[in-house]
Design a protein around this nucleic acid. Structure first.
Lengths: 365, 365
DNA sequence: CTGAAAGCGCTTACAG
DNA sequence: CTGAAAGCGCTTACAG
């Protein structure tokens, strides 16, 4: 393995000078820098991560903690994080939080504390006190995306507003018998997001004098199949809903397919609106509330970079907009929003957008 | 931050003894070990990754290089890798290979060479000579999953056999007019896998005297939408195919939906078989050739562990089967297979399985 | 602008 | 079984 000494020897300077020339920190004459760069290039020298980390305390690595790595939402967010961090020379290490309590503990007690990273991004996680403390004790920038963690700086879509937007869209179309496919209670324990969507949704319906009875709520597991099952059940009611709001696009698509199978036309007999901005939504012409998960990841990456390299991000104007203004700017017209970041530590509000396609229309009657 | 010195002080031993007690390497009296463990626990000490790496040369970290992190296949493989490595205390760092040539170079020239990892797993990548060399020069275990890289130890499904199996299934059902949805040429440049599937497929058809004419081949982009478009086109032919083999489940599902939209019944009027084992396949009752991507990731993880910890894996009997035997054992009966690992460096053959569900049946005639 | 040297936090022969 | 000390490959005050 080629080390800094090899480069120093070839360039006929000290290792200190090599370090300065390569890192750009400190001063080196143009001629010397040239010589060092050439030598490093010739030898294919790349600084050792471990040695550099030990000396500087910086790893050029960001940890991302996710509950699942193979579900669409999380891998999409991860893609956004990677897109934001990769070009800036940061690596990403992945911490998948296991179901098993013992293994989960190990992630927070050990893996995370090895100090392999300069910052952490936690996605849609509900962390208990110990876990939160583990993260905070790292004394590193920690950004949460979603998840109810009052003690963490959180970037989150206003899920209450998402629910309100869905309700308003359906009400505006003239629907009055409106159902909801949301999270089963066990499922929601972890995420809590669906509940907020539901609350905003219900509140807006209530304001319009429309009630979401038990018969009009069907719990599901956020999969296409679960959504289809839930919709099938809802469509079996004697007084069938004319519209369904599903708390995810996959469930919404399941509902569309189930309706089709049941001979119920969409949108003539049934309107369906989802949440996410799932790539399949376009194919199914799904009306949805797009929460741009890729953008969420990019945004978290930008926050991390801002925290890690205050000067560098000041130099990059695009990133230099304060949190709230940045989200404001990208909010489209159709977007409603509730109270900003209430109850959250230094929160950032993420944009969402109602995308009206062909699964919603006025009710037939 | 609590360091090994703090623990040593509290336990009243030297740092050397702390290191030995905590790592389990070297000998420490039971009493001393107890004391050290208690001290470490009390202080919440976790060894610093950088310091430990620098001293030992081991990072307890495995790199995974993928072309896309947010596509189903790759995130599922990644999930398998994480499932295999996490419990053994390894972290995973993610290298997403960008489209952009410049950025791609940076990944292989710089990111990968920072020696942040003990081993590398490259998923479905076609690497050029320089990239391959970069990986090999790391002088670390490198395992490829799929992808045509003769110089890398590769775990791969026998895609020729996959194609043969699909063809045989459809022929056995009595189909003679059989179409294929495969990769567009540009798309296949990167992966080359689809071509092999197609070759095995065509060869088997040819052996049965059935030919795959140009009119019966439709290229697509491996998305559901692309599959639907391709199928729509195929079904427009005057002499319509009675069966379609799609080179991925997402394309196959697209074909099923397109057929439905065109009023073509599945499987009565059209049989469809895919490849992958996509989670949505079950919902759509799709007949498919399951290549178990999660298992592929686990398998790669096992190979990496075998290389990194020869003794440890010898102690775990389940992992101790030689490559070829392991795959043999897990091959199910329905599985055909061609020549093993021909032309590949120390290759391992990954199992696949024909899963017959409800989108294939004898042709109506 | 450049170099000698200390130090980052561990691990591991080497002695005892 | 245990400790003193060298060393892993960098970086960064500190001098000059």
């Amino acid at each position: 393995m080629v080390s800094i000494d090899d480069v120093a020897r070839l360039a006929q300077v000290s290792t200190a000078t090599v370090s300065r020339a390569l890192s750009g920190r400190g001063t080196v004459s143009a001629a010397t820098r040239e010589r060092v760069l050439r030598a490093a290039d010739r030898l294919g020298y790349v600084v050792s991560a471990a040695a550099s980390s030990l000396a500087t305390g910086r790893t050029r690595n960001v940890g991302v903690v996710v509950p699942h790595i193979d579900r669409w939402f999380f891998s999409t967010v991860l893609g956004g994080v990677a897109a934001g961090l990769g070009p800036r020379g940061y690596d990403i290490t992945l911490y998948a939080v296991p179901e098993d309590a013992e293994a989960r503990r190990a992630v927070f007690e050990t893996a995370v504390r090895r100090r392999r990273v300069d910052a952490m991004i936690a996605v849609s996680l509900k962390l208990d006190d110990d876990e939160t403390r583990s993260l905070l004790e790292l004394d590193l920038p920690v950004i949460a995306i979603g998840g109810p963690n009052p003690r963490l700086a959180t970037l989150a879509v206003d899920d209450d507003a998402v629910g309100r937007t869905a309700a308003r869209h359906l009400l505006d179309l003239g629907h009055r018998r409106i159902a909801h496919i949301g999270a089963a209670p066990e499922f929601d324990r972890e995420f809590r997001i669906p509940t907020q969507r539901r609350q905003g949704f219900e509140a807006t319906l209530a304001d319009a004098g429309v009630s979401l009875t038990t018969a009009l709520f069907a719990p599901a597991d956020f999969t296409l199949e679960g959504g289809a099952r839930a919709a099938t059940q809802l469509l079996r009611e004697r007084d069938r809903p004319t519209a369904i709001f599903a708390a995810s696009d996959e469930m919404a698509i399941g509902a569309v397919l189930a309706a089709r199978d049941a001979g119920v036309r969409v949108p003539e007999d049934l309107s369906v609106v989802g949440v996410d901005g799932h790539e399949l939504g376009e194919f199914f012409h799904l009306t949805t509330i797009d929460q741009r998960p890729h953008g969420q990841g990019e945004r978290a990456a930008a926050e991390v970079l801002r925290a890690l390299e205050p000067t560098a991000s000041a130099a990059a104007p695009a990133d230099d907009v304060p949190l709230s203004a940045a989200s404001e700017a990208s909010w489209s017209q159709e977007v409603g929003h509730g109270e900003r970041g209430a109850g959250r530590g230094r929160a950032g509000v993420l944009p969402f957008e109602l995308v009206v396609r062909e699964t919603t229309a006025p009710p037939a009657g």
